[in-house]
Simulated assay, not measured.
Amino acid sequence: MKVGLIQQANGGDIASNMQRLATKIRRVARDGAELIVLQELHNGLYFCQTEDV
């Protein structure tokens, strides 16, 4: 089984993060990945990078 791993730096714009992620998913799928593993908290910033009082 071919596995694709995706790790990316995210910003505060979730739509932009998701678009870049979708592009990368399509790329690794096109390269033959049958299982694609994303980073934890893959669509936004880590909780410790934002403050919501």
Rank of each mutant, 00 (worst) to 15 (best):
M1I: 12
M1D: 09
K2V: 06
K2H: 09
V3E: 03
G4D: 01
G4R: 06
L5M: 15
L5S: 13
I6D: 00
Q7T: 08
Q8H: 10
Q8M: 14
Q8S: 04
A9Y: 01
N10A: 03
N10G: 05
A15I: 00
S16P: 00
S16R: 13
N17Y: 05
N17H: 05
R20N: 12
R20D: 06
R20T: 04
L21C: 14
L21N: 06
T23C: 06
T23A: 15
K24Y: 09
K24C: 03
R26Y: 10
R27P: 00
A29E: 12
G32S: 04
G32D: 07
G32T: 01
L35V: 15
L35M: 15
I36K: 04
I36H: 03
I36L: 02
V37F: 05
V37N: 09
L38W: 07
L38Q: 12
L38H: 04
L38E: 08
Q39V: 00
Q39E: 14
Q39T: 08
E40Q: 11
L41C: 13
L41Y: 06
N43A: 09
G44Y: 05
L45S: 03
L45R: 15
L45G: 02
C48Q: 13
C48W: 14
C48V: 07
Q49W: 08
Q49E: 15
Q49T: 09
T50V: 15
E51T: 04
D52A: 11
